[in-house]
Design a protein around this nucleic acid. Sequence first.
RNA 1: CGGGACGUGGCUCAGUCUGGUAGAGCACAGCGUUCGGGACGCUGGGGUCGGAGGUUCAAAUCCUCUCGUCCCGACCA
Length: 603
Amino acid sequence: MREGTVISEAGASAGAGCGLSQFFYTFRYREEMRYSQTLIPTLKEVPAEAEVISHRLMLRAGFIRKLSSGIYSYLPYGLAAIRRVETIVREEMNRAGAQEMMMPMVQPADLWKESGRYEKYGPELLRFTDRHERESCLGPTHEEVITDIARKEIHSYRDLPINLYQIQTKFRDEIRPRFGLMRGREFIMKDAYSFDVSDEMAETSYKKMYDAYNAIFQRCGLDFRCVEADSGTIGGSFSHEFMVLAETGEDTIAVCDECKWAANLEKAVVRLAGSGSREETLALVKVETPGKRKVAQVCDFLKITPDRLVKTLVYIADGEAVALLIRGDREVEEIKLKNYLGATDLRLADDKEVFDATGVPTGYLGPLGISIRLLADQEVMHLANFSVGANEKNYHLLNVNGGRDFRVSEVADFRRLCESDPCPSCGGSLRLVQGIEVGHIFKLGSAYSESMNAFFQDSEGNGKPLVMGCYGIGVSRVVAAAIEQNHDENGIIFPVPLAPCQVTVLNLGLKDTDISAAAEMIYAKLSAAGIDVFLDDRDERPGVKFKDADLLGFPLRVTVGKRFQENGMVEIRRRRDGKAEESTVDGLVDLIRRRLAELTGQR
RNA sequence: CGGGACGUGGCUCAGUCUGGUAGAGCACAGCGUUCGGGACGCUGGGGUCGGAGGUUCAAAUCCUCUCGUCCCGACCA
């Protein structure tokens, strides 16, 4: 097997059009793609270890085999799928002016101590000592190494901007690896790092990557969305996630049907409709609500709807109890609360903690006279005459009004966006969909360059920290996500750009010289036409070949069998919709080309 | 780390409760028939029952410990 051969410089390659320094790569996985000569151990039955669809199909299709928890070997055809993604990523990164390099997987602990992450990173970072008792770790990411290179090799503004990337294996010792390649411990990632002279320039670099990522996933033929994301603890600025839409996705994202807006629910800002209630305020009333603690029970008892009730939730944020007011029918988006508080650990308090902190049993908490730090979701301040707990067992208050009856100094957006909310950008209607995170881009700023002393001199000779950005794509996860999004009960349905081979030729008459000769000729012609073609030349029954062709997900299938004997026709069948047509051998190459062109970019 | 399930030929699983000759289907090898949607018949090879210790005349089965895998949660991005 050959590992990527440089075949041409820019200009010779389709779609190219950039400078001479750009190299484009193409891959021939093997000189020959004959089933009889290739290890593709397909399975009829699903191994017990697999639950999610992409994992099951990748095992069944003989793409991967597990070595240990969260660690997989890529068998030839699975690797070929990975290479497809890598090739697209590589071409688009190069086109965007990034340079490929490769950094070590084993890294010295000292480097991580410099950035402060040796302590912060937690047990996901696999640490070990070598024979000389030197502390080391396996790279879960490469900010430290790249920053070390930058501080040693980049000294002048004349060297900037620069964007360096690699496609490499990462190791993260996940607590619970699961879903096969979707969340493994060892996985293939493309990571890029940009260095700029200023924030403004860094934004330009960020924008370039933003565009490159859109181009990459577009070219992969995936249904995806770029969403505003929580930048987490990496800090400051902003970030975007690229999500492949699939029902089995782990993240929920909100998308607008009327504009381009989309966001991770963790981050999605709620825009309130209107400016608040115009109801006349009524006099405060205290009522007995014996044993009514849950929102539903209280509402039932008081004969009100949950949107007229405000619940008071107590959280423990880094050990401190804080209360949060939110409408009874809403849910708290804990990430928003966590970010607002700047807390590293946040969880709902249990009954005992609530009582210890407030002296009130859960179910009867309210904002009036509460002793702990009080926060309110913005929506609460727009309500009038709502009900809350009375901070006294078995009592609630009616006709409560914020500002009149209590004051909250900390009001912000803490609730989870719902489908019924208006789009924060255009006011249009929203949909919530599930997504798989396959890419994430961050503006890093100068946190790493400052902690690790990566400075350059500007045109006036002043030392300044490099302004960084980092950009990741889960290459192996893209393959899994593509399968999650594109499959049916018979197997994988690869988008044309990701299929290791776009066409499979089934020789159904292995012992018939005419059929075999025709199959061989078709295989050779398609191959010569530059189409990645696969030939099922195994001594198997037709049923087996059909099943395997479906399972492996070739976009097109050419069947050479008894119809060829009868009238010289072969069948071309599309994997996605099962539509079949007949063709003569002569017209086949053109027909295949047309069908592939139609299918490309189609879902 | 908490909760749950599981570990028996390459794969899927039965057998474990109630201790007594290790089984089936698929896969693999040979022969024959078959040949456009995972064929059939016959023959054959292959298992320290995850590992260690214990109870017993006797352990896949009961007990203890241990290793591993999967699912839910917490965690991570």
